[in-house]
C-alpha cells in the first residue's frame, strides 16, 4: 500500500512539511503503508514549464505518477492570501483530470493565525471534490499557536484514522470508473473506448 504526501511548504524546515509528516506517520502506523513525500518546492520550475509547454519534466513526471498510483494522499499547503498557495494549485492544474478520481485524500493547511482555518472548507475541499477525490471528513489545520496547544495531536489522530479506514475500505477496489456509461478497456497506459463502440454510440444506440 502506498501513501503519498504532497507538501507545498516553502521554507526549510517547514511547518507545512512537519504537519504532513505527522499525518503520514499516524496514517502509516494504522495501514502499514509505504510513505513517499513530494516536496513541491523542488518541482516549482518544472511545474511552471509544464504550464507553458504542456508536458512534465522528469522529476515532475515522477511525482505525478507517484500521486496517481497512490492508495491514499495527504495534501498540505500553507495559506497564502486567504487560500491554498499558487504552487499547490498549479501542481494539481498540471495533473491528469482523472488522476485523483476515487482516491482517499486528507486535506491539511498551515498558517500564522487561526483566522484562516476555514480555508480547508471553502478552498481545499471544493477543489478535491471537483477532482472526484474522496476527502476525509476531518481536515487538519495548524496555526502557529496550535503547535504548542492541546488539540492538534487529537485532530491528527482522528483524520489519520479516517484516511486509514478509507484506504483499506471496500470502496477503493470497486472504483468509480467501472460505472461509467462507456465500457473502457486498457492497453498499455491507455484507457479508451474501442472504435466499434464509438461508431455505434454515434448511431445513438
Amino acid at each position: 500500500m502506498k501513501l503519498v504526501v504532497v507538501s507545498a511548504g516553502l521554507s526549510v524546515p517547514s511547518s507545512t512539511r512537519l504537519l504532513g509528516d505527522r499525518l503520514a506517520a499516524a496514517a502509516a502506523e494504522r495501514t502499514g503503508a509505504e510513505v513517499q513525500v513530494v516536496e513541491l518546492r523542488e518541482l516549482a520550475v518544472e511545474i511552471a514549464h509544464n504550464l507553458t509547454n504542456g508536458f512534465p519534466g522528469p522529476q515532475l513526471g515522477g511525482a505525478l505518477d507517484a500521486v496517481k498510483a497512490a492508495d491514499g494522499l495527504i495534501v498540505v499547503t500553507p495559506v497564502f492570501s486567504a487560500s491554498y498557495s499558487g504552487l499547490f494549485k498549479s501542481f494539481f492544474d498540471v495533473m491528469d483530470e482523472d488522476a485523483l478520481a476515487g482516491k482517499p485524500v486528507l486535506i491539511a493547511a498551515t498558517a500564522g493565525t487561526a483566522r484562516h482555518s476555514l480555508v480547508l472548507e471553502h478552498a481545499l475541499r471544493p477543489l478535491f471534490a471537483y477532482l472526484k477525490a474522496v476527502v476525509v471528513p476531518t481536515a487538519v489545520f495548524a496555526a502557529s499557536e496550535d503547535w504548542g496547544a492541546d488539540g492538534l495531536a487529537d485532530r491528527i489522530e482522528r483524520a489519520a484514522g479516517e484516511l486509514a479506514m478509507l484506504m483499506a475500505g471496500p470502496g477503493r477496489s470497486a472504483g468509480p470508473r467501472e460505472s461509467a456509461p462507456e465500457a473502457k478497456v486498457t492497453s498499455g497506459d491507455f484507457e479508451f473506448v474501442p472504435f466499434e463502440q464509438q461508431l455505434s454510440a454515434l448511431r445513438g444506440e
Binding site: 509547454n53 504542456g54 508536458f55 522528469p58 513526471g61 492497453s187 498499455g188 497506459d189 491507455f190
Partner: peptide, 17 residues
C-alpha cells in the same frame, strides 16, 4: 514538443491496436 517516453507509449498503443 514531447518527451520520448510519451511518444513510445502512443506508438506502442497504435501498433498493438
Amino acid at each position: 514538443f514531447w518527451p520520448s517516453d510519451h511518444t513510445k507509449r502512443m506508438v506502442e498503443f497504435y501498433r498493438t491496436r
